[in-house]
Each structure stands twice: as structure tokens, then as C-alpha cells.
Design a protein around this nucleic acid. Structure first.
Lengths: 205, 205
DNA sequence: CATTATTGGGGAGTGCTACTCTCCAATGTC
DNA sequence: GACATTGGAGAGTAGCACTCCCCAATAATG
């Protein structure tokens, strides 16, 4: 399959594919001559993956590149797999995290983590603290009780996420990283649907 | 307070505040002369809100404008409040929804909604269908069982969301819309934390 | 009252991202 | 042999979120 075939198979314009190739988001095809290369199904999958991560998960191309690099790498030691996965996830997401949140919100975050028996990954705790600060600054009060309920729901989700994983380390990494990124928007949509249901039940509002 | 005071109070540069004023994201201050206007605490709150929605919730300025417009409007009829809220939320988020998803995924989405007893808001169902398609295209399989678990967790969250609301209609709208937008990232962070916990429990992986 | 600083307003410029266009000689196809 | 297509690379584009600069009018200061 030549580049126009790849374009036809994925619905992505040839010019954009060339751009992805240049940027290293899609590996080059097998060159059959100086002006011809052959693309196969793995390329089709790659292109679709890039589109899904940008369009649905909302990642930037730079973030996509990081995620793909993490997936392609043999994850050094197999027991550090989830660590690698989260490194990829966290790095792929907001770089808007320079500061580390207020002392107060960091304490709240750390207390919640401790209460749940979660590990206190510094990156994640800091991020949570910043998000709590942002809500506070916007005048939205996030109570401890409410936060606990969110955490309980997250706990269920985390369990479900890991439940889908096969023991095979490479596909597990792929499954967790991509699955999480691609079902984040799904989760938020479900949340909105559930809100509508909840509002009906609590009366007309 | 003049514009420099507003800048000092919010940490946002004067040039940026002027830009927000021009774009109508922040209402003009009370003009005390042709070259002077007075800003008060409501302006400080507005600016902080804009920053929280862009930096933490990841909205574009255009989306922020839509959300603010929806909040400022008297919500026509008070019983359509959640409807207004969701209209604001949905409109504020992805416009990347032109198509409507595969027939298959739309059916899956509608079945899930029916199973949960949720209302089948067309906009939300279509969005969910597209997100499922994106995951599928990327080669990530989302099983029905897994989706059900996500929905169950979402149901809890939706209940918790509505539980924080006071019967006062105006503050309820504000609470739901802003609360949802600002705790979406919180929820995703908690999910990642829970994944780390789950991975520890299922063995070293 | 004179001088200096600041203000609101607005146009234009910046840096970044994700493409998109144009050109080229080499190659494939009919 | 004529024409279309390809890979490669440079340059151009559109949109976004600022950021800079200039202006005359005003406020603050001595």
C-alpha cells in the first residue's frame, strides 16, 4: 500500500500523513525504491491511534509522540510497568504544572490519599492539589465529603481498569495507557448522563 | 480598584486583563472618567473563574464565554435548570462532534443508557458513541462489562454531584456547571491514583 | 500649577500548534 | 513514451491566547 492507500484507509489527507511521517508519529514505510514506500496494517493502526489520541483524548501531537515512545520502548524492567505507564500518562498530560499548589490543598490531597490507602505519588498529589486550588479560586467549594465520594468512585474505576489487563506485560502497558486515555472522555460523558438522571430523581429541580 | 489593582489581586497581567475586557470575558468596570474605571470583587472573582476554567478545566476562551453567558442568563424557566446547565456544558466542550458515530456504537450507547434508566439525551449519546468508536479505531477494546462498571461509578458520581446542590436555582446552576467542569480533572487524577493502588494489589505486575 | 505616571482603548505583532501547499526529480502506470 | 503519483522538504496558513506599543486623557505628586 502506498501513501495514497494509507490515506484512503484512514481518511487522513496525504499531506497530513506526510507531516506525521516527518514528525516521527508514524514510522516510515518499507522503501521499495527511492520514491516509493510500502505501508501495511500496522501503519493504518498507528494513524488511527494518533487520530484517536488527538481527537478523542485531546492530546497534543507532542504528547502523542511521548505516549507512543513509551509504548514502543521495552519497559526496561517488567515490574515497573505501571510506573512506566503512569510516567507516560502524566508526562503526556498537562505541563501546566509548574507550581505545586497551596500548602493547605496539598495537605488535603495527601490526607485523602492516606485515607484511601493509596500511594502518594508526588506528581499526582501535586496535580490534585492544584486542581483543588483552581476550584477554590473560582469560588467552587469542594467539600471533604464530596471529595471522598469521588475517590470512592475512582477506586471502583481503577479496579475495573486493572481488571481488563492480561498478564502479558507488553499488551498490559498498551491496554492501561491507551485504555485510560481513551476512556477518560467516556467517563466524563457518563458523568453528565448520570447527572441528568440524578436531577430527575431529586425532583424537577 | 483600577486595572492595575485587579492585576495585582489576580496575578494576571494588565495586558491580558485588557484582552479579556475586549473579548467580553470580564464585564467593564464602572467608568469614573473617560480614562478610568473602577473594578470590584466581582471582577476579581470573574478573572479567577476565567483562569480556573482555562487552566484547570482546559476550556478555550470561546467556551468560557459560552459558559459565562449561560450562567449570567436568567435560566428562562427554573425547572429547565439542569437542561440549561447541560446545554452550557455540552456546548462548551468539544465541537469536534460533527458526525454521530457508527450505528453499532450508537446502539451500544443507547443500550447502556436504557439499562441504567438514564434519559437518552441525543447529544450525549452521540458523543459517547463517537468516543467508543475512537477507542475501537485505536484498537482498544471496551467490553460491555467494563462499560457497565464505568457507568455504575458515574452513577455514584452523578448522585454526589447533585447532592451538593442547594434548592436555590441560580446558585444550583452555578454549582453544577462550574463544579462539574472544575472537578472533571480532579476525577481523572483520582482515577490514576486508584490505578496505582489497584496495580499494587493485583501483585507486582 | 507643572510634571510625571497611569489609564482605557485599540491596532498590530508574537509564539505556538497542526496542519496545508508548493515544488522537485525520481518513479510507476498505461 | 506520456502522464500521474510518490517521497521528501521548505514555506505558508489559520486559529488561539496572549503581548506589545501607541495614543490622548486623566490622576498623582511636588
Amino acid at each position: 500500500m502506498r501513501i495514497s492507500g494509507l490515506a484512503a484507509a484512514t481518511g487522513v489527507p496525504v499531506a497530513t500523513l506526510k507531516y506525521y511521517l516527518r514528525e516521527g508519529l508514524v514510522p516510515p514505510g518499507a522503501a521499495t525504491s527511492r520514491t516509493q514506500a510500502d505501508y501495511d496494517d500496522t501503519h493504518v493502526g498507528r494513524v488511527r491511534l494518533v487520530r484517536a489520541l488527538t481527537e478523542s483524548a485531546g492530546l497534543s501531537l507532542a504528547a502523542v509522540r511521548d505516549v507512543l515512545a513509551a509504548l514502543d520502548d521495552p519497559p526496561t524492567s517488567r515490574h515497573d510497568l505501571l510506573g512506566a505507564a503512569h510516567h507516560a500518562l502524566v508526562a503526556a498530560e498537562g505541563d501546566r504544572a509548574a507550581g505545586a499548589g497551596t500548602d493547605l490543598s496539598r495537605r488535603r490531597a495527601r490526607e485523602l490519599v492516606a485515607e484511601r490507602g493509596w500511594c502518594d505519588d508526588l506528581l499526582l498529589v501535586d496535580r490534585l492539589a492544584e486542581q483543588l486550588d483552581a476550584a477554590d479560586a473560582a469560588g467552587v467549594e469542594v467539600s471533604d465529603d464530596y471529595l471522598r465520594e469521588l475517590a470512592a468512585a475512582a477506586d471502583q474505576i481503577g479496579t475495573a481498569d486493572l481488571g481488563t489487563v492480561r498478564p502479558d506485560p507488553v499488551s498490559a502497558l498498551r491496554q492501561v495507557v491507551l485504555g485510560t486515555l481513551l476512556t477518560d472522555p467516556v467517563l466524563l460523558t457518563l458523568r453528565r448522563m448520570a447527572q441528568v438522571r440524578a436531577s430527575r430523581e431529586t425532583g424537577g429541580v
